[in-house]
Amino acid sequence: MMRIEDIIDLDTHPLAQAGFGTRCDAILDDEGVLVLENFIRPAALAAILAESKAKQEEAYFCAQSHSVYLTPDDPAYPEDHPANRKVVSSKGCICDDVVAATSPLRTLYDDRTFRDFVARVTGQTELHPYADPLSSINIHYANRGQELGWHFDNSSFAITLLIQKPDAGSRFEYVKGLRDADANEMNYDGVDAVLQGTLQPRVLTMEPGTLVLFRGRNSMHRVTPNESDKTRMLAVLAYNSEVGVELSENARMTFYGRLS
Protein backbone atom coordinates (compact mmCIF):
# COMPACT_ATOMS: atom_id res chain seq x y z
CA MET A 1 0.00 0.00 0.00
CA MET A 2 1.31 3.47 -0.91
CA ARG A 3 1.90 6.05 1.79
CA ILE A 4 0.12 9.38 1.46
CA GLU A 5 3.40 11.17 0.66
CA ASP A 6 3.81 8.75 -2.25
CA ILE A 7 0.37 9.72 -3.54
CA ILE A 8 0.15 13.49 -3.03
CA ASP A 9 2.91 15.88 -4.11
CA LEU A 10 3.10 17.51 -0.67
CA ASP A 11 6.05 19.66 -1.70
CA THR A 12 3.89 21.50 -4.23
CA HIS A 13 0.70 21.18 -2.20
CA PRO A 14 1.58 21.42 1.53
CA LEU A 15 -1.91 20.60 2.82
CA ALA A 16 -1.05 20.90 6.50
CA GLN A 17 0.31 24.44 6.22
CA ALA A 18 -2.22 27.04 7.33
CA GLY A 19 -1.06 29.57 4.75
CA PHE A 20 -1.60 27.15 1.88
CA GLY A 21 -5.09 26.37 3.11
CA THR A 22 -5.91 30.07 3.44
CA ARG A 23 -4.81 30.75 -0.15
CA CYS A 24 -6.85 27.81 -1.44
CA ASP A 25 -9.88 28.94 0.56
CA ALA A 26 -9.66 32.41 -0.99
CA ILE A 27 -9.40 31.01 -4.52
CA LEU A 28 -12.39 28.70 -4.04
CA ASP A 29 -14.51 31.52 -2.61
CA ASP A 30 -13.52 33.93 -5.37
CA GLU A 31 -13.61 31.63 -8.39
CA GLY A 32 -16.01 28.93 -7.26
CA VAL A 33 -13.39 26.37 -8.26
CA LEU A 34 -9.98 25.34 -6.95
CA VAL A 35 -7.65 23.56 -9.39
CA LEU A 36 -4.62 21.78 -7.92
CA GLU A 37 -2.47 20.66 -10.84
CA ASN A 38 -0.07 17.72 -10.50
CA PHE A 39 -1.70 16.89 -7.18
CA ILE A 40 -1.15 13.16 -7.59
CA ARG A 41 2.36 11.84 -8.12
CA PRO A 42 2.98 9.97 -11.42
CA ALA A 43 3.44 6.50 -9.89
CA ALA A 44 0.23 6.82 -7.86
CA LEU A 45 -1.66 8.12 -10.90
CA ALA A 46 -0.42 5.15 -12.93
CA ALA A 47 -1.69 2.78 -10.24
CA ILE A 48 -5.09 4.51 -10.16
CA LEU A 49 -5.33 4.36 -13.95
CA ALA A 50 -4.45 0.66 -14.00
CA GLU A 51 -7.11 -0.07 -11.38
CA SER A 52 -9.69 2.02 -13.24
CA LYS A 53 -9.06 0.19 -16.49
CA ALA A 54 -9.20 -3.20 -14.78
CA LYS A 55 -12.54 -2.40 -13.12
CA GLN A 56 -14.18 -0.72 -16.11
CA GLU A 57 -16.02 -3.88 -17.17
CA GLU A 58 -17.83 -3.78 -13.81
CA ALA A 59 -19.14 -0.25 -14.38
CA TYR A 60 -22.88 0.40 -14.48
CA PHE A 61 -23.70 2.50 -17.56
CA CYS A 62 -26.87 4.52 -17.84
CA ALA A 63 -28.34 7.51 -19.68
CA GLN A 64 -30.75 9.89 -17.99
CA SER A 65 -32.94 12.74 -19.15
CA HIS A 66 -33.21 15.46 -16.52
CA SER A 67 -33.73 19.17 -15.99
CA VAL A 68 -30.90 21.56 -15.19
CA TYR A 69 -32.25 21.77 -11.64
CA LEU A 70 -32.43 17.96 -11.19
CA THR A 71 -36.04 18.35 -10.04
CA PRO A 72 -39.33 16.78 -11.19
CA ASP A 73 -41.35 18.55 -13.87
CA ASP A 74 -43.10 21.68 -12.64
CA PRO A 75 -46.67 21.76 -14.03
CA ALA A 76 -46.75 25.54 -13.57
CA TYR A 77 -44.45 25.87 -16.61
CA PRO A 78 -44.49 24.47 -20.18
CA GLU A 79 -42.16 21.65 -21.24
CA ASP A 80 -39.73 24.01 -22.96
CA HIS A 81 -39.39 26.27 -19.91
CA PRO A 82 -35.91 26.19 -18.29
CA ALA A 83 -37.44 24.57 -15.19
CA ASN A 84 -38.59 21.59 -17.27
CA ARG A 85 -36.36 21.50 -20.35
CA LYS A 86 -34.52 18.22 -20.59
CA VAL A 87 -30.84 17.52 -21.13
CA VAL A 88 -29.11 14.13 -21.19
CA SER A 89 -26.39 12.70 -18.96
CA SER A 90 -24.73 9.39 -19.79
CA LYS A 91 -21.81 7.68 -18.07
CA GLY A 92 -20.55 4.53 -16.43
CA CYS A 93 -19.74 4.26 -12.74
CA ILE A 94 -18.09 1.87 -10.32
CA CYS A 95 -18.83 2.24 -6.64
CA ASP A 96 -16.91 2.42 -3.39
CA ASP A 97 -17.21 -1.30 -2.70
CA VAL A 98 -15.41 -2.10 -5.98
CA VAL A 99 -12.44 0.19 -5.21
CA ALA A 100 -9.67 -1.92 -3.67
CA ALA A 101 -8.73 -1.57 -0.01
CA THR A 102 -5.13 -0.94 -1.14
CA SER A 103 -6.08 1.61 -3.81
CA PRO A 104 -4.31 4.99 -3.64
CA LEU A 105 -7.79 6.50 -3.96
CA ARG A 106 -8.82 4.93 -0.65
CA THR A 107 -5.61 6.00 1.07
CA LEU A 108 -6.23 9.53 -0.18
CA TYR A 109 -9.90 9.51 0.84
CA ASP A 110 -9.16 8.23 4.36
CA ASP A 111 -6.12 10.42 5.04
CA ARG A 112 -6.76 12.81 7.93
CA THR A 113 -4.54 15.58 6.57
CA PHE A 114 -6.35 15.55 3.23
CA ARG A 115 -9.78 15.45 4.84
CA ASP A 116 -8.92 18.29 7.22
CA PHE A 117 -7.64 20.35 4.28
CA VAL A 118 -10.88 19.83 2.35
CA ALA A 119 -12.95 20.69 5.43
CA ARG A 120 -10.96 23.88 6.07
CA VAL A 121 -11.13 25.07 2.46
CA THR A 122 -14.85 24.33 2.06
CA GLY A 123 -15.79 25.76 5.46
CA GLN A 124 -16.97 22.51 7.03
CA THR A 125 -16.43 21.68 10.70
CA GLU A 126 -15.70 18.06 9.87
CA LEU A 127 -16.26 15.55 7.07
CA HIS A 128 -17.48 11.96 7.15
CA PRO A 129 -17.87 9.15 4.59
CA TYR A 130 -21.27 8.06 3.33
CA ALA A 131 -22.95 5.46 5.53
CA ASP A 132 -24.02 3.39 2.52
CA PRO A 133 -21.38 1.11 0.95
CA LEU A 134 -21.50 2.62 -2.55
CA SER A 135 -21.23 6.39 -2.52
CA SER A 136 -18.00 7.59 -0.90
CA ILE A 137 -15.58 6.86 -3.77
CA ASN A 138 -16.83 6.52 -7.34
CA ILE A 139 -14.99 6.24 -10.64
CA HIS A 140 -16.84 7.62 -13.65
CA TYR A 141 -16.31 6.57 -17.26
CA ALA A 142 -17.35 8.46 -20.38
CA ASN A 143 -16.90 6.70 -23.72
CA ARG A 144 -17.33 8.31 -27.13
CA GLY A 145 -20.54 10.36 -27.23
CA GLN A 146 -21.18 10.23 -23.49
CA GLU A 147 -21.60 13.47 -21.57
CA LEU A 148 -22.95 15.19 -18.47
CA GLY A 149 -25.76 17.58 -19.37
CA TRP A 150 -26.11 21.06 -17.89
CA HIS A 151 -27.07 20.96 -14.20
CA PHE A 152 -26.68 22.41 -10.73
CA ASP A 153 -25.38 20.15 -7.95
CA ASN A 154 -27.47 19.41 -4.87
CA SER A 155 -24.36 19.33 -2.67
CA SER A 156 -22.40 22.45 -1.71
CA PHE A 157 -19.13 21.20 -3.19
CA ALA A 158 -17.63 18.34 -5.19
CA ILE A 159 -14.14 16.82 -5.26
CA THR A 160 -12.89 15.23 -8.47
CA LEU A 161 -9.62 13.77 -9.70
CA LEU A 162 -9.01 13.41 -13.43
CA ILE A 163 -7.51 9.98 -14.14
CA GLN A 164 -7.53 9.82 -17.94
CA LYS A 165 -8.23 12.58 -20.45
CA PRO A 166 -9.78 11.78 -23.85
CA ASP A 167 -8.20 12.97 -27.06
CA ALA A 168 -11.06 15.34 -27.92
CA GLY A 169 -14.22 16.69 -26.31
CA SER A 170 -15.21 16.21 -22.66
CA ARG A 171 -14.76 19.90 -21.88
CA PHE A 172 -15.81 21.00 -18.40
CA GLU A 173 -17.87 24.16 -18.87
CA TYR A 174 -19.45 26.25 -16.14
CA VAL A 175 -21.15 29.55 -15.33
CA LYS A 176 -20.35 30.73 -11.81
CA GLY A 177 -23.09 31.97 -9.48
CA LEU A 178 -25.95 31.68 -11.95
CA ARG A 179 -28.56 31.09 -9.24
CA ASP A 180 -29.01 31.45 -5.47
CA ALA A 181 -30.56 28.20 -4.28
CA ASP A 182 -30.70 29.23 -0.62
CA ALA A 183 -32.75 32.31 -1.54
CA ASN A 184 -34.85 30.24 -3.98
CA GLU A 185 -33.76 32.48 -6.85
CA MET A 186 -33.58 30.09 -9.82
CA ASN A 187 -32.68 32.68 -12.51
CA TYR A 188 -34.65 31.05 -15.31
CA ASP A 189 -33.61 33.77 -17.76
CA GLY A 190 -29.94 33.12 -17.10
CA VAL A 191 -30.35 29.37 -17.44
CA ASP A 192 -32.27 29.86 -20.68
CA ALA A 193 -29.44 32.04 -22.03
CA VAL A 194 -26.92 29.27 -21.33
CA LEU A 195 -29.13 26.60 -22.92
CA GLN A 196 -29.67 28.83 -25.97
CA GLY A 197 -25.96 29.53 -26.27
CA THR A 198 -26.26 33.30 -25.86
CA LEU A 199 -24.43 33.25 -22.51
CA GLN A 200 -21.02 31.66 -22.96
CA PRO A 201 -19.57 29.53 -20.15
CA ARG A 202 -16.03 29.35 -18.87
CA VAL A 203 -14.01 26.28 -19.85
CA LEU A 204 -11.92 24.58 -17.18
CA THR A 205 -8.91 22.79 -18.62
CA MET A 206 -7.11 20.11 -16.63
CA GLU A 207 -4.68 17.26 -17.09
CA PRO A 208 -4.64 13.82 -15.43
CA GLY A 209 -3.53 14.02 -11.81
CA THR A 210 -5.36 17.31 -11.25
CA LEU A 211 -7.59 17.59 -8.17
CA VAL A 212 -10.55 19.96 -8.44
CA LEU A 213 -12.81 21.32 -5.71
CA PHE A 214 -15.92 22.84 -7.28
CA ARG A 215 -18.89 24.68 -5.83
CA GLY A 216 -21.64 23.48 -8.16
CA ARG A 217 -24.76 24.22 -6.14
CA ASN A 218 -25.18 27.67 -7.70
CA SER A 219 -22.85 27.30 -10.68
CA MET A 220 -24.41 25.69 -13.74
CA HIS A 221 -22.03 23.22 -15.38
CA ARG A 222 -21.65 20.34 -17.80
CA VAL A 223 -19.12 18.03 -19.45
CA THR A 224 -19.46 18.05 -23.24
CA PRO A 225 -19.58 14.75 -25.18
CA ASN A 226 -16.41 12.70 -25.49
CA GLU A 227 -15.34 13.05 -29.12
CA SER A 228 -12.65 10.35 -29.09
CA ASP A 229 -12.23 6.61 -28.58
CA LYS A 230 -10.21 7.24 -25.40
CA THR A 231 -12.38 6.94 -22.29
CA ARG A 232 -12.57 9.84 -19.88
CA MET A 233 -11.98 8.53 -16.35
CA LEU A 234 -12.66 10.62 -13.28
CA ALA A 235 -12.69 9.80 -9.56
CA VAL A 236 -15.30 11.48 -7.35
CA LEU A 237 -14.57 11.70 -3.61
CA ALA A 238 -17.73 12.43 -1.62
CA TYR A 239 -18.00 13.42 2.05
CA ASN A 240 -20.79 14.59 4.36
CA SER A 241 -20.78 17.11 7.18
CA GLU A 242 -22.78 14.71 9.39
CA VAL A 243 -22.36 11.08 10.42
CA GLY A 244 -24.72 8.42 9.06
CA VAL A 245 -25.82 10.08 5.80
CA GLU A 246 -26.82 7.69 3.01
CA LEU A 247 -27.57 8.37 -0.61
CA SER A 248 -31.27 7.62 -1.08
CA GLU A 249 -32.29 4.20 -2.39
CA ASN A 250 -33.85 5.85 -5.44
CA ALA A 251 -30.62 7.71 -6.21
CA ARG A 252 -28.52 4.57 -5.74
CA MET A 253 -30.72 2.57 -8.10
CA THR A 254 -30.64 5.42 -10.63
CA PHE A 255 -26.89 6.00 -10.62
CA TYR A 256 -25.51 2.60 -9.60
CA GLY A 257 -28.17 0.10 -10.60
CA ARG A 258 -28.10 -1.53 -7.16
CA LEU A 259 -28.52 -0.76 -3.46
CA SER A 260 -25.57 -2.66 -1.99
Rank of each mutant, 00 (worst) to 15 (best):
I8G: 08
T12P: 05
H13F: 11
G21R: 11
G21Q: 14
T22Y: 07
C24Y: 04
I27W: 08
V33L: 04
V35E: 01
L36F: 03
E37P: 06
N38K: 11
A43Y: 03
A43R: 01
A44V: 04
A47R: 00
I48N: 01
I48F: 01
E51D: 01
K53Q: 13
A54P: 00
A54C: 03
E57C: 10
A59H: 05
Y60T: 14
F61L: 08
C62E: 08
C62Y: 12
C62R: 15
A63D: 01
T71E: 09
T71M: 07
D73W: 06
D74W: 06
A76D: 10
A76V: 14
Y77F: 15
P78C: 12
E79P: 11
H81L: 13
P82E: 15
A83S: 14
N84A: 11
S89T: 14
K91W: 09
K91I: 02
C93G: 11
D96E: 10
V99G: 02
A101F: 07
T102S: 15
S103K: 05
S103D: 06
L108T: 05
D111W: 07
R112P: 00
R115D: 03
F117E: 11
F117H: 07
V118N: 06
V118H: 12
R120V: 13
H128E: 02
H128N: 03
H128K: 11
A131H: 14
A131E: 15
D132L: 08
P133I: 05
S135M: 08
I137F: 03
I137K: 01
H140C: 10
Y141E: 12
Y141K: 04
D153A: 12
S155I: 12
S155W: 12
F157K: 04
F157E: 06
T160P: 03
S170I: 02
E173W: 01
K176N: 13
D180S: 14
A183H: 04
E185V: 13
Y188I: 15
Y188Q: 13
D189T: 15
Q196Y: 04
T198K: 13
L199H: 06
L199E: 09
V203H: 04
V203L: 11
G209H: 03
V212G: 02
R215W: 00
R222T: 11
V223W: 01
P225S: 06
N226D: 00
D229R: 09
R232E: 01
A235G: 03
L237A: 01
E242G: 07
G244L: 13
V245W: 08
S248T: 15
A251H: 09
A251I: 08
M253G: 02
T254R: 14
F255G: 04
F255K: 03
